[in-house]
Simulated assay, not measured.
Amino acid sequence: MSQISEEEKQYVVFRLGSEVFGIDINKVKEIIVYQEPTHMPGSSEFIEGIINLRGHVIPIFSLRKKFNFPEAGDMGKTRIIVVEAGNSTVGIVVDGVSEVVMISGSVIEKPSSLLTSTVDENYITGVAKMESGLVIILDLEKVIGRDMAEAI
């Protein structure tokens, strides 16, 4: 496995089931408590619906469905991470946001198809080896780009 650049970046770390993911903090606009979206007939299977966020209607995207994870049981810690992906503002539903961390490129390795059996390796920038465990770094543009284009 080859390594990514040595540059240090900040990532928002969140959980989906037992897996830990990270996304570039520069893509994150805010993190809000989960609110039930209004369902939109005919939308992509990965779109849970829409919410009104301070006067702006934004689609809510399910990473859980995208990655074929089982439905969540407890919704108590569920959050919506509002992100900028492409030219769209989108909310992604996660099981919980744990922290914002600085991760050096020196601890991030390119993904291997052996490591990423449940998540398409094209969606992954790399895997960070942290003291607390592995963090899968997602490429948001690739994860939700095409689905959002179809949904809007």
Rank of each mutant, 00 (worst) to 15 (best):
V94E: 00
V101L: 10
K110N: 12
P111L: 12
I47F: 08
M148G: 08
E36Q: 12
R64T: 00
S62M: 03
V101F: 00
I60L: 13
I50C: 09
R79T: 08
G49D: 07
I47Y: 07
M75D: 11
P59D: 11
Y11I: 07
F69H: 00
I60A: 08
S113N: 13
I103S: 04
P111C: 12
G76M: 12
S2I: 14
L16W: 00
Y34D: 14
V143D: 02
E48M: 15
V119I: 15
S88G: 09
Y11P: 06
I47N: 09
V20F: 01
S88E: 15
V135A: 10
Q3E: 13
V83H: 02
E48L: 15
S112W: 02
G105P: 07
V127M: 07
T116V: 09
S106A: 15
I81H: 02
S104L: 06
L140C: 03
V107S: 09
A72I: 10
F61S: 06
K9Y: 05
I137K: 05
H39D: 10
I23N: 01
G76Q: 13
S106C: 13
V101R: 10
S88L: 12
G126R: 05
S106M: 14
G42H: 05
M148L: 15
I31W: 02
S117Q: 15
I51D: 06
V57D: 12
V135H: 05
E121L: 13
P70K: 03
S117T: 15
E121V: 12
H56E: 11
K110I: 07
R64M: 00
G91I: 08
T89R: 14
G55Y: 04
V97N: 00
L53C: 03
P37I: 07
V12P: 04
S88N: 14
V20Q: 01
I103A: 10
S132C: 09
K9M: 11
S132Q: 14
F69M: 06
I137P: 05
T116F: 04
D24H: 02
T89G: 08
P70G: 05
E7L: 13
M75P: 13
E99S: 13
F46M: 08
A72N: 08
K66I: 02
M102K: 10
M40D: 03
E131K: 15
M148S: 09
S132D: 14
I4M: 07
N87A: 06
S5D: 10
K65W: 02
K66T: 04
V83N: 05
E71C: 06
I81L: 03
R146T: 05
E7N: 11
L138C: 05
N122Q: 10
F21G: 04
K9W: 04
E30P: 06
S132T: 14
I144H: 01
G17H: 00
E6Q: 11
G91E: 08
E121S: 15
E99K: 12
K129A: 13
A85T: 11
I25R: 02
S112F: 01
V127R: 02
K77D: 14
I47A: 10
L63G: 00
I47S: 09
I4H: 04
I58W: 05
Q10I: 02
Q10K: 11
G42D: 07
A128H: 05
G126A: 05
V28P: 04
V119L: 08
I23R: 03
M130V: 09
E141T: 04
E48N: 14
I136Y: 06
S5N: 09
I144L: 13
I92T: 14
L114T: 08
